[in-house]
């Protein structure tokens, strides 16, 4: 009995991390109708950047994250301006393939530079348990992931719903020509949107790096996690990613409990496929916004 409760708690906490992994993808899809197939690789790229800065250069994780975010923002702005914006008006396929190209380049560049070995970002909290009763324990690292995850989603929702900048993003998503006719450079807005998404991906990259081992080809795995979170929570709904993340976490942990840890990830994939098949708009999909 306690073991199931333990699985549920861990699943929910893991869900917070999954929410940060998915929220950027949800944003890009909601605003640009673009499935960012490079989302996972951008995340892992951020993991490597943070690892590099934290362990080799500045020695401080927070400072390392800050530098990483700045670098990732520049990179994503360039990707959007020089690659995606050139094809975004030609339908979904070219943008998808461009992003696929970007993902292949990032992954193989990482292999070239860092090798294919497993890496981690050291995290003192990951070995500390916040709650440590004989039956149930809560890992400090997972708890921090969860809190950061919820915070990132809430901050992003605040930016999109409450600020003028967020309003212009929503306007662009709602009626692109209408926004352009008010003087909004909508391609620029798209670039900012990708930047916002990649900023969340950078935070996700740090959390992933502190929680699990990563290597260059883990990108697709997190892309699929992100996609699953977005699909389960409803495409384009930022709040939905929290629900989607937690559900995915629960499904994984509970199936690990019942079928063995080897089946944890597959169970998650099967759950996604079932949702995609029976409710492609997401479990909680309602009118957008």
């Amino acid at each position: 009995m306690y073991i199931i409760i333990q699985s549920v708690i861990t699943g929910i906490l893991l869900g917070g991390l999954y929410a940060v992994i998915g929220v950027g993808m949800s944003l890009v899809f909601g605003i640009m109708r673009l499935t960012n197939i490079a989302h996972g690789d951008l995340m892992i790229l951020a993991s490597y950047f943070t690892m590099l800065f934290a362990m080799e250069i500045v020695g401080n994780v927070f400072l390392a994250l800050l530098i990483t975010i700045v670098l990732m923002l520049i990179l994503s702005f360039l990707i959007q301006t020089f690659l995606v914006n050139r094809v975004i008006d030609k339908g979904p396929e070219p943008s998808l393939l461009v992003m696929f190209g970007v993902s292949i380049i990032i992954r193989n560049a990482l292999i070239l530079i860092f090798g294919a070995n497993n890496r981690t970002i050291p995290n003192p909290l990951s070995t500390t348990n916040i709650l440590n009763s004989p039956n149930i324990s809560i890992s400090g690292g997972y708890l921090v992931n969860f809190i950061v995850g919820v915070a990132v989603v809430l901050v992003l929702m605040f930016i999109i719903q409450k600020t003028y900048f967020g309003m212009s993003i929503r306007a662009t998503a709602s009626n692109r020509m209408g926004a352009e006719l008010l003087g909004v450079n909508t391609k620029r807005i798209f670039a900012y949107t990708l930047c916002l998404a990649v900023a969340t991906a950078s935070i996700a990259g740090l959390l992933i790096g502190q929680t699990f081992v990563f290597y260059p080809s883990t990108g697709p795995q997190y892309l699929i996690t992100a996609f699953g979170v977005v699909v389960i929570g409803g495409m384009g709904s930022l709040g939905g990613t929290l629900v989607g993340g937690i559900l995915l976490g629960l499904v994984q942990l509970l199936s690990a409990h019942f079928f063995g840890t080897g089946w944890q990830t597959i169970a998650g994939y099967v759950f996604m496929l079932v949702i995609l098949t029976i409710r492609p708009q997401g479990i909680f999909a309602k009118a957008r916004r």
């Binding site: 212009s168 929503r170 306007a171 709602s174 009626n175 209408g178 006719l181 008010l182 003087g183």
Partner: peptide, 26 residues
């Protein structure tokens, strides 16, 4: 120069106030 185009150029899923505030983007 701006245009109020044929058909709709409004932002359906935003409020009237937000629609107008968007006008002041520049």
């Amino acid at each position: 120069v701006t245009m109020s185009p044929e058909g709709s150029s409004i932002f359906e899923d935003m409020t009237i106030k937000e629609n107008l505030l968007m006008g002041a983007y520049l």
